[in-house]
Amino acid sequence: MSEETAQEQQARRQDYSEKEKAEVFDGEFMPHVDSMYNFAFRLTFDEDDAKDLVQDTYLKAFRFINSFERGTNAKAWLFRILKNSFINEYRKKSKQPNKVDYNEVEQYYNSDDVDESITTDLRVETVQHMIGDEISGALNGIPVDFRTVIILSDLEGFTYEEMSKILDIPIGTVRSRLHRARNMMKEKLASYAKEMGYNK
């Protein structure tokens, strides 16, 4: 990554007035809220988590608004904050055991609706129904690091250089990760086509 010194960073710091902060926030940050939510949702597969993640990102963006230079790439800056928040907070959270309402579970397993396939990834299935066709389904089924590069490149149109800054990885890694991610998508779509009775 760029090896900017603390002094250089300090020199680049802005000193916005309250009015200017509001202008930057409304004019440069808020237009990206839709893309941010979509990105967050595709990372978390959960509406509430996505909402929290976006809110948290905007709070941080406002808190650190003086380190954002007006007219530079606000979207990439915001995506970087969101990605870091996701890694630092939401990924950790998702590794914790889920809180379960045992009455609900008991009620379910005592009912006639019990289905063996319940053990599959419910989040992925749910999201497929919500935003889904086979391509979204394939995307949702690949690991998050690979899913991320597809979203950033194919959906949001970021360049490799922007992606390398957002993700804190070298450009070469962006290139190879994207290649692997697309191969994973192709494999998933090929399996889907086979299931649907299409041959090569």
Binding site: F25, N38, E47, K51, Q55, I135, S136
Partner: peptide, 28 residues
Amino acid sequence: IKDEIKKKLCEHKAAMPANLVTTIRKSV
């Protein structure tokens, strides 16, 4: 393949909650 992925992903964007913008603005 790339065009199709892009097209489908753009068609199936998750709908943003209606109150999100207001909530963000209030929070700051």
